[in-house]
Design a protein around this nucleic acid. Structure first.
Lengths: 246, 246
DNA sequence: AGGCGCTTGTGAAGGCGTGCACAAATCGCG
DNA sequence: CGCGATTTGTGCACGCCTTCACAAGCGCCT
């Protein structure tokens, strides 16, 4: 889902201290660790063991240690990890200290929900603008923010540097919106439209397709159903709750 | 994100013809192929080459061929794949011919959007019930469907076999809802709440965390920003559109 | 100060997934 | 009927990720 070069170029420490070359899989887990850490911090924990944090994040403890080792040694042997320190470190790595501006394009069912989603603001993202191509929706106020016409995108982008564009339009409009976003300098796109986007190589696209998630679950339902028809019946006895911690 | 056993038990073909043991990565791509195929079918295509379908789905053609080979030989050398046949085959594998019933728990911003999401119905899923714990929301009609209280879950489950439960509640309520769903026999859960769910091993959980997606993009923004500060300036010249086909 | 228990950080092994490159197979045409 | 163009299906090698197992390091207790 991305073919960008990392280019270590060691020794060249300008403003940023030689950005670490983290595995993609690790990056995808850092937000989960961060959430667990925030939870622990609110509970008053000073330190956590890899075992404890791993359980809270729902991963293997060895994996967690390896992940954290990639971003430096912020743990103390025999004690664990300093919660506050680790929070700062991960937030820095993820660039969450920048309070990035996000715009949502497409104010349908989903765009409406995204505009009001509290989880964004609490994680360092500011939804700064809502756009739609439908003049009937322009002017509508959602979550204290007026919907603007997509033609205003360029003007808004000049005024406020947009870090991430969220596409929540029908799939037929998605590519055109992506092109517009790219044209005004957006280099990160979160796409909710069920279609493939074509963008320049320097632009990162992540896709979330709700129907696909259901289809994957449907497959597993199908598989499970076909297995219960076999000997050694799996039965449907619910109740053997798995202890993974809360 | 799952630790289920597939258990091949070869030779034991009962009603279902010995369910294929597909790699998880392949399964995750099948819905994407299916969408592309539907698109092609509507355009009147009888057959597709692996190259063509791969481009439409945004993947490598070799990967696509390998994926399709896992579910049997439905292509013809020198010609390509029969679109209609492949659609049927993938829909069968994914179990989409069952028109599975879905319920949404938590009618906040997101649950509201999910209840009205057209992408579900068009893909063989029926949203049959909406639940919430807030009595103030019970009775509200969304998309022609009345919100019911979560206490009614059991009654609804007895009447209509629920295949998949969607959790769109605040994270504090998610585990309790998951327990309820499991208790009424739901074995597939799509979780939008930012928290780790603990469920029995026979239950499949998939998680979608919108904030995590933004954080991953934020990381890449951070990384790109730190690279532009290095020699060989990457510049921001937009316009070298990558040709991957529409 | 010394030893002991606990926890991190990491080397190594194994598994999974990807992508190349090519043999096998099919169609159409002369 | 045979040949060439085309496209599938797959053996193989490579790289990433995961997992185990253990040495190294730190704090605490005696």
């Amino acid at each position: 889902m991305s073919q960008q070069r990392h280019g270590s170029t060691p020794g060249e420490a300008g403003d940023v201290p030689a950005f670490p070359d983290l595995p993609e899989a690790t990056i995808a887990r850092l937000p989960e660790y961060l959430r667990a850490l925030h939870h622990l911090a609110e509970a008053g924990a000073e330190t956590v063991s890899s075992e404890g944090l791993a359980a809270a994040a729902g991963v293997n403890s060895a994996k967690l240690r390896k992940d954290l080792s990639h971003l430096g040694s912020y743990g103390t042997r025999g004690v664990g990890y300093d919660v506050a320190l680790l929070v700062d470190q991960i937030e820095y790595i993820l660039g969450l200290d920048k309070n990035r501006a996000v715009c949502v394009v497409g104010v349908g069912n989903l765009g409406h929900a995204l505009a009001g989603y509290a989880g964004f603001a609490s994680r360092g993202f500011r939804v700064v603008a809502l756009f739609d191509a439908d003049h009937g929706k322009v002017g509508e106020v959602i979550n204290g923010m007026a919907v603007r016409h997509i033609d205003d995108l360029e003007a808004v982008a000049e005024q406020e540097s947009i870090a991430i564009g969220v596409i929540a339009t029908p799939p037929t409009a998605a590519q055109a919106v992506a092109d517009l976003l790219v044209a005004v300098g957006v280099t990160s796109i979160l796409n909710f439209a069920p279609c493939v986007l074509s963008v320049p190589p320097n632009v990162d696209v992540r896709k979330v397709d709700l129907a696909i998630e259901l289809q994957i679950l449907s497959f597993h339902e199908h598989r499970k159903a076909s297995l219960t028809a076999l000997p050694g019946g799996v039965g449907g006895s619910a109740g053997d709750q798995e202890a993974v911690g809360s």
